[in-house]
Nucleic acid binder design. Structure first.
Lengths: 126, 126
DNA sequence: ACTTAAAATGATAATAGGTATCAATTATTT
DNA sequence: AAATAATTGATACCTATTATCATTTTAAGT
């Protein structure tokens, strides 16, 4: 993968904004932070895909209509609030050994898995 | 919800074809099985949404590009083969008490959750 | 530095999944 | 049977994402 200024901005912005943004949302933030730098939306989509395929960032599927992206590639889970639609990290040990257990029981060669919780977040309950 | 012949066909076809189809795929099957019956694609989308919202069937998100639907609403998980793209049920007890555990640790009001595994299925390994 | 080949970009057309609209039809209630 | 509400089919529309392509930038070799 060759260097590109745009890719650096995209990755850096994703890392500094841990909000699990969609491509469109990330584009918005990039524009705000770099009003002069003229990065096209196709470049954002392209690079997010490339970075995710390379395992440098993670694609989060199963949330609303669009794909979201996460700079954190360590094992963790997500919760999306049905009301405010915000995505929260769940960094707790709630599914210990689930890959091994499932591999053993099913015989599938599991390479990846995701857990998505839905409900109402603390802020929206009150 | 009023009765409709179309909805009955849609639900019945979904139940008899436990292949976790997308709306388009289900439409295909319906057309094959009922060449005369002229059900529009909008009706399929509309009814799958309505049935899922009513809890009669379940929407599976996080699989490829499109939403898939499952007539089985009991707690179970899914595995999608990255090669053949088939969706398999995982009906094993691999995440016991995960809602309680996560609710307790996070304080979110969790109403639902999904686990999606990815990898290569037995058929595609050989 | 200069040249060349490969990779990346920005603009935008194209595609795909899904929803909204609306007049016509079908169910339900009285 | 008449009135009201729900549903349908056709299709226009919207939104997320990818493809295309000419141009620019990067990396490597001389």
């Amino acid at each position: 993968m060759n260097y590109s200024r745009q890719r650096e901005v995209i990755l850096d912005t994703l890392e500094r904004n841990a909000i699990h943004p969609t491509a469109e949302k990330l584009m918005e933030v990039i524009k705000e932070e770099n009003p002069d730098s003229n990065i096209g939306i196709a470049t954002v989509y392209r690079n997010l895909r490339k970075l995710a395929d390379a395992g440098i960032i993670k694609r989060i599927e199963g949330l609303e209509d669009a794909e979201h992206f996460d700079h954190n590639t360590h094992t963790h889970y997500h919760f999306i609030c049905n009301k405010c639609k915000k995505v929260f990290d769940i960094d707790e040990d709630i599914a210990d050994g689930i890959i091994e257990k499932t591999t053993q029981k099913t015989g599938f060669a599991i390479t990846d898995y995701d857990i998505v919780f839905k409900g109402i977040c603390k802020n929206c309950i009150d």
